[in-house]
């Protein structure tokens, strides 16, 4: 568990069973405290995110799960008046350290948000954006990546004839898959999902869940969700948070069947939440 090696990209898509067995820690936090002004939102969080596994973070509203996931790619930098104590490590490098390059971190750690947020541009431009800002100008390469990411996001068949239409014309579920494709297009290593199905209907939700399970083969996934069934369906590890604290963390089937903590059991059985 302590071995922290970056897995070469070229191997990643071929056979991950070896790495899955080894359980590399891709990201971890160490005694993480986080404050909005004077209000403490996270208390002493220690959590490991394993390479090529998916980790679900569950808990009632306001427990800090979204705050935590947004710290993994420094999205909370945009929120004024916040303070971090403790460390968040990606491949054993502190992402808030003085040498950390926030642009590089966000490229490696992609994010899909609660509400689908495509740019008001065409579908094609939405996907090529991330590549173009990296300075990639090769048209054929961009086109190839666009197609590839749409296929991976299971959206290709639905949009292949209208790549140059405005992305806002897509349905909510399609927009969210487009956002996933946009995230994939820049080849991140970790993907953060912040309640990706919160604004979608059950059918669209099912499609996204299916997609997340598929993506697990290639990426390390962290997903915040309100929906316990969703957590049990898509994740291998589950973290239960309550009032800013990490109450329990472990294999999903263990958490859901034999939780160690009383709070976890109460939450899972619907006593509060």
């Amino acid at each position: 568990m302590a071995i922290n090696t970056v897995i070469p990209k070229k191997n990643r898509n071929i056979d991950d069973s070896f790495y899955r067995e080894m359980k590399f820690v891709r990201m971890r936090t160490e005694n993480l405290n986080f404050y909005y002004g004077k209000k403490q939102a996270l208390k002493d969080i220690n959590i490991n995110i394993y390479q090529n596994h998916s980790t679900a973070i569950i808990g009632p509203s306001g427990c800090g799960k979204s705050t935590l996931i947004r710290l993994f790619n420094r999205m909370n930098d945009l929120v004024p008046n916040t303070r971090i104590e403790g460390g968040i490590y990606l491949d054993d490098k502190d992402i808030n350290g003085p040498k950390a390059d926030v642009v590089e971190i966000r490229r490696k750690v992609g994010m899909v948000f609660q509400k689908p947020n495509p740019f008001p541009k065409t579908i094609y431009e939405n996907l090529s954006y991330g590549l173009k800002i990296q300075g990639i100008n090769d048209k054929t390469l961009i086109e190839q990546k666009v197609v590839e990411s749409l296929q991976k996001a299971a959206l290709w068949d639905e949009v292949k004839d209208r790549l140059h239409d405005n992305a806002l014309g897509l349905s909510g579920g399609q927009q969210q898959r487009l956002c996933i494709a946009r995230c994939i297009a820049v080849e991140p290593e970790v993907i953060l999902f912040d309640e990706p199905c919160a604004s979608l209907d059950p059918i669209a939700t099912a499609k996204i869940e299916e997609l997340i399970e598929e993506l697990e083969k290639y990426y390390t996934i962290v997903i915040v969700t309100h929906n316990m069934q969703q957590a049990s369906r898509v994740s291998e590890y589950t973290a239960f948070m309550y009032l800013g604290e990490l109450i329990e963390f472990g294999k999903t089937e263990k958490i859901f069947t034999v939780p160690k903590e009383k709070k976890t059991e109460e939450y899972l059985s619907g006593k509060f939440g």
Binding site: M75, V103, M111, N117, F119, P120, Y129, I133, C183
Partner: peptide, 27 residues
């Protein structure tokens, strides 16, 4: 311009200037 556009742009690794000129100002 919705905050989510800015977040989306940052999340794919854009810096502030790129976000401003390619997303916020066009929008």
């Amino acid at each position: 311009v919705p905050k989510s556009f800015r977040e989306a742009s940052f999340a794919v690794g854009a810096n502030r200037w790129q976000t401003l000129t390619k997303v916020i100002i066009p929008a």
